[in-house]
C-alpha cells in the first residue's frame, strides 16, 4: 500500500474506533426522517385537509422530500470532516499521527479522502431517512413516491456526491481553524444562521439572487436538484415574488468542489504547516 493508501486506512480506522461517527449518523437519520416525513405529510393529503397543500407535481414533491438528506443533513458531514482534523489538535494525537507519517500533505490528503468516504456514507444514511420515511408517507397519503423512476435514483447519486464534497469542506475548514470549538461554532453559525439569512435576503433582488446562487448551500441544492430554499416560492404563494436563480447540477458540483479545494489549499499552506508543539 502506498503512503496515501496507508494514510486513508489509518484515518478510516481512527474514525471507526471512536463513537462520534455513529452518533452523528443516528442524529442525521432521525433529523432527515422527521423533516422528510413532515414535508411529505404537509405537501400531501394533510396539507389539503388543512386548507393549504400544494399543486406541485409529484416529481417536485418527491425531489423536495428526498433532497432533505442533503438540504437538511449537509451539516453532518461538514462536522465530521472538521472533527477528523480538530480532534487531533484537541487530544494531542496529531503528534503520533505525524510521527507515523511526517509528510503533512499526505496526512491531510488521507483525512480528506476518509471524510469524503464518510460523507458518502452519511449520504446513504440521510437517504434512508428521507426516501425511507418520506417515501412511505408519500405513498400512504395518496401521493406517488416515484421510487421506480430513474430520476429519483439520479437525485440520490448526486446527493451522495454532495455529501462527500461537504466532508471535504469540513476537513478544509477544520485544518484551517484547528481549534475544535471555534470550528464547530463557525460551522453551526454559518450553516444555521448566516447562510439562510443571506439566501433569504439574496432573493429580494434579481442581482443578489445571481450572487447568492454561489453560496455553498445553494450550490449544494443545485447539485442535488432540489432544496428547501429553492422551493420557497412553490410552498408559499407570497414568496412567489422572490427572485430565484440556480446553477445547473454540474455547476453546483463544481462550486462545492471549488470551495473544498480552496479551503484545503489555504489550510495546507497556512495552519497545517505550523509547528506541532
Amino acid at each position: 500500500m502506498n503512503a496515501i493508501g496507508r494514510s486513508v486506512a489509518a484515518e478510516l480506522l481512527r474514525v471507526l474506533s471512536t463513537r462520534i461517527w455513529w452518533i452523528l449518523a443516528l442524529v442525521l437519520f432521525g433529523y432527515t426522517a422527521f423533516v422528510a416525513g413532515f414535508l411529505a405529510l404537509f405537501l400531501g393529503d394533510l396539507g389539503k385537509v388543512l386548507g393549504g397543500g400544494t399543486d406541485l407535481p409529484a416529481r417536485a414533491v418527491a425531489d423536495l422530500v428526498y433532497a432533505t438528506a442533503t438540504s437538511v443533513g449537509y451539516v453532518v458531514p461538514v462536522l465530521l470532516g472538521a472533527l477528523i482534523v480538530t480532534s487531533e489538535y484537541r487530544t494531542g494525537t496529531l503528534t503520533p499521527t505525524l510521527l507515523a507519517e511526517p509528510r503533512r500533505g499526505v496526512v491531510l490528503t488521507g483525512k480528506a479522502i476518509a471524510a469524503a468516504a464518510f460523507g458518502a456514507l452519511f449520504g446513504v444514511v440521510g437517504l434512508l431517512g428521507s426516501v425511507g420515511l418520506g417515501g412511505v408517507v408519500l405513498a400512504v397519503s395518496g401521493g406517488d413516491p416515484l421510487l421506480g423512476s430513474a430520476e429519483t435514483w439520479a437525485l440520490c447519486l448526486r446527493a451522495l456526491l454532495a455529501m462527500a464534497l461537504w466532508g471535504l469542506i469540513g476537513v478544509g475548514l477544520g485544518a484551517l481553524v484547528a481549534n475544535q470549538v471555534v470550528a464547530i461554532v463557525v460551522i453551526l453559525v454559518f450553516t444555521q444562521f448566516i447562510e439562510p439569512i443571506l439566501r433569504v435576503v439574496g432573493a429580494i433582488w434579481a442581482w443578489s439572487a445571481e450572487v447568492g446562487k454561489f453560496l455553498p448551500g445553494a450550490a449544494s441544492d443545485a447539485l442535488v436538484g432540489s432544496g428547501l430554499f429553492g422551493s420557497l416560492g412553490a410552498l408559499d404563494p407570497e414568496a412567489a415574488a422572490m427572485h430565484s436563480a440556480a446553477l445547473s447540477w454540474w455547476e453546483g458540483g463544481l462550486v462545492l468542489a471549488g470551495i473544498a479545494a480552496l479551503l484545503l489549499v489555504v489550510a495546507r499552506t497556512t495552519t497545517w504547516r505550523r509547528d506541532v508543539a
Partner: peptide
C-alpha cells in the same frame, strides 16, 4: 485501537 491506527498509518 490507538496502536492499530498508529501501525496502519506508519506501515
Amino acid at each position: 485501537d490507538h496502536l492499530r491506527v498508529q501501525a496502519t498509518g506508519g506501515g
